[in-house]
């Protein structure tokens, strides 16, 4: 059984990592709007991704898998197999996003679409905060606190939805009047024409990358809804792997955005 000290440690570790990520995000934004060094931006993104992979996605759990000598029908062994399968899937999925990144670098090089940077920072922060709450929810469940798990998962879900709407409704101008009103709040200069899929390679790359990412956010939201509903019925009090899987997937979406955010909003010069 985990003692109280360990429980608190796990929670405060989540907070500490979140603070690091927030500072780094702010740093990259400031670098981008001041001296815009590509090297710094790449390094910051790699550090952020490393933090999420290690602390939030606890990649090292892959090494803690019970070995083949364990009973193959036991829950612990099956969890190990499921974990391996999920990470293999994420590896495969990473190639999609890697391909999109290669496409963006080939077509746009060191230019980027002309977008509202304040809004970009805002949605990035929203997704980052959601990752924090996801971690907190998972830790609560691990600590045997079902109510805390449900509350934090719900917050994650709402923030994820906010991110999705921010991208699809506002950035994509799905509802032009709402988009313009919100963009105005974010200090959008008057008269900038909104990006369209058909407006050159910048538009094509932007819509393809955010679209593929938004599709993953959508599926992540579905998983969150599933674990919330089933968690409420106490399904995961003992067998917690589904929650871990949904959390790892959610953080993976965040890792993708850690690279897509600078690629779309920060590096190079706006065209």
């Amino acid at each position: 059984m985990i003692n109280k000290q360990e429980k608190t440690n796990l929670l405060s570790q989540g907070v500490f990592i979140f603070v690091c990520l927030a500072v780094l995000t702010l740093l990259e934004f400031l670098v981008a709007v001041t001296f815009n060094s590509l090297v710094v931006l790449v390094v910051v993104a790699l550090v952020k991704a490393g933090l999420v992979l290690y602390y939030y996605m606890h990649m090292s759990k892959l090494n803690e898998n019970p070995d083949a000598a364990t009973d193959h029908e036991s829950y612990a062994f099956k969890t190990g197999t499921n974990r391996a399968g999920l990470w293999l899937f994420l590896l495969s999925d990473a190639f999609v996003f890697g391909g999109l990144m290669a496409m963006r670098l080939n077509l746009l090089g060191l230019t980027r679409p002309d977008l509202n940077q304040n809004l970009g920072l805002f949605v990035t922060v929203v997704l980052l905060v959601s990752s924090f709450f996801m971690n907190r929810g998972e830790t609560h469940l691990h600590n045997g606190n079902r109510a805390g798990f449900l509350k934090n998962t719900m917050i994650t879900f709402i923030l994820g939805l906010a991110f999705l709407l921010g991208v699809v409704m506002i950035e994509w101008h799905a509802i032009p009047s709402v988009a313009e009103a919100v963009l105005h709040l974010f200090g959008e200069p008057a008269g900038r024409t909104p990006l369209k899929p058909s407006s050159g390679v910048a538009g094509a790359a932007f819509f393809m990358m955010t679209g593929m990412h938004a599709f993953h956010v959508l599926t992540g939201l579905i998983f969150l809804a599933v674990i919330w509903v089933n968690g409420k019925r106490g399904l995961y009090d003992e067998k917690q792997y589904p929650v871990e899987a949904a959390a790892v997937y959610w953080h993976f979406i965040d890792v993708v955005w850690i690279f897509f955010y600078p690629a779309l909003y920060l590096i190079g010069t706006a065209i």
């Binding site: 077509l107 899929p197 058909s198 390679v201 538009g203 094509a204 819509f207």
Partner: peptide, 11 residues
């Protein structure tokens, strides 16, 4: 959607 990935006319 008339996106220009491989269309030289759109870059």
């Amino acid at each position: 959607f008339d996106m220009g990935f491989f269309d030289p006319a759109k870059g």
